[in-house]
Design a binder for these strands. Sequence first.
RNA 1: CGGGACGUGGCGCAGCCUGGUAGCGCACCUGCUUUGGGAGCAGGGGGUCGCGAGUUCAAAUCUCGCCGUCCCGACCA
Length: 565
Amino acid sequence: MSGVRGSQLLIPTLKDDPTDAEAISHKLLVRGGFIRQVGSGLYTYLPLGWRVMRRIDTIIREEMDTIGQEMLMPVLNPAELWQRTGRWDIEQLYKLTDSSGKHYALAMTHEECVTFHASREIRSYKELPQIWYHIQTKERDEPRPKSGILRTREFIMKDSYSLDRDEEGLEASYQRHIEVYKRIYDRCGLEYWMVESDVGMMGGLGAHEFMAPSSAGEDEVALCSSCDYAANVELARSRPRTPQFPERLDAPKQIETPGATTIEALAGQLGIDQAATAKAMVLSRDGEVVLLLVRGDDRMHELKATKALGGAYRPATPEEIVATFGAEPGSIGPVGVGARVIADETLREGQYVSGANRTGFHLLGVEAGRDYSPEFADLREVRDGEGCPDCDGTLRVERVIEIGNIFKLGTKYSAPLNATYLDESGQSQPIVMGSYGIGLARIMAAAIEQGHDDNGMIWPASIAPFQAHMVVIGDAGSEQFAIAEELEGQLTAGGTSVLFDDRDVSPGVKFADAELIGAPVRLTIGKRTVSEGTVDLQARRGREQISTSVRDAPERAQAILQEGA
RNA sequence: CGGGACGUGGCGCAGCCUGGUAGCGCACCUGCUUUGGGAGCAGGGGGUCGCGAGUUCAAAUCUCGCCGUCCCGACCA
């Protein structure tokens, strides 16, 4: 084994940030010559980028092999499989027709395919449990690819599927995945959290996500400072502060509130706490007008509202509002209305100011249960600094990149695709399934988002494209070159991957590229070090350059790599 | 799908408002010098200005349409 020569490697680094890149990982990957864009949401991994992907791939494979069996399923799937599970109509699913008129889907994930195989190959409880996985290209017609490789239309995913006889078995497979996932992310040198997540429209029995903190992320999670509560804000709960209620009333009292059409104006005019008001939002779901209420100081969370309503909605038009409530927006409330009313859980107790359904008027002392009878649901968005729902701690809200997810599917797929087994008594039972995904490129991007400085990337040793970057100042045939080759041999013999930069460019270019590419350790061999019998060694992560003897250099380089994950 | 921006040698940009046939930096090629922080000098190559119509004697520049890319939002099994 030997290192890779810089003169033989495609290293198309750029001095300037690409115009259309926003995320740091996107900028650095393009600048460092790791990726190039082919079209919207479509990227080529150049040699440097692909080296990183392969190292991530290897880590995932090594860990997954401890619990599952690797296989490979096709990207192209017959339409029928997707029609049977009802997923054929998903907009993000690419559909195509072959020359004979048959319809196909480009798989966005492989529940259908796995379940198809399970239905044909699994006969008996004696063959369960199973965990099958593959690492393969996924296709999704993303409405809006973004942030470089963070959201693309084609990407490589490790997806695994557990087959169990019952929920107890599923729970065990789920736990085994959690342990394996933690080892994978630990080995990749990422900071991450496991959080409760929404099961999505596919139902299911529960789900978690693995989230890497980064400002480039698309999701937000709520984390408790003192216990292990951690949840995606899509379903996070919290203890809101207690409002300062005005004096209790035996019945609602109508008051004139001219021009007070916002909570801020209303609370200001009445001189009360915004949290002592109820904010009304009028929505339309399938043409039905529905009134949603949250506390005045809260914001409605759109996904929570969607779940409460049972599907997609739109804001009602002013005409619909006037027709339904007999008053204009800004004076709408729940008392005496014919429409469906859904109130946030915070409104169960206490008396709130709400619209009177008479333009320019509000009601004081409105009480759920007494004055109106809503459905209750969790509708409010959790905010940074609120109390933890499980303990006395405080929640903080952090932006994150989703680097993996795990779902308890139950029989969602096995039922429609007839994946069953015979139990001890000869009864046919549906297989209980789980599905588990990791996006390789997300790991790569998250590692950069979490490890970079002004000069470039700072890779964890475990997934770096090269672990050691040798800057050789001198031509082939020089004394520097000979010493560098000797060091290269020792490093590679010790299992270290080496980029031997022998390019015919100035030293400044080599140093700049070394920092951009971000190998965790850099060795510099020049005339000066040769005359002293030394090598200059530098850890990429903010460390001073040290001078060491040629003999000690490999060992000291190894030591730096050990520290760097 | 709604909103915004952009599209000019490989990359980053200027020129457009006020029409007159394209320029700068980097990169690239050749030669010489240089070699511990994105080298110097000299010479050189490369662009039907995203595409299509229109206005005009004349369009990178004005008008209309389309396409592409990015950003915000919606969406994200």
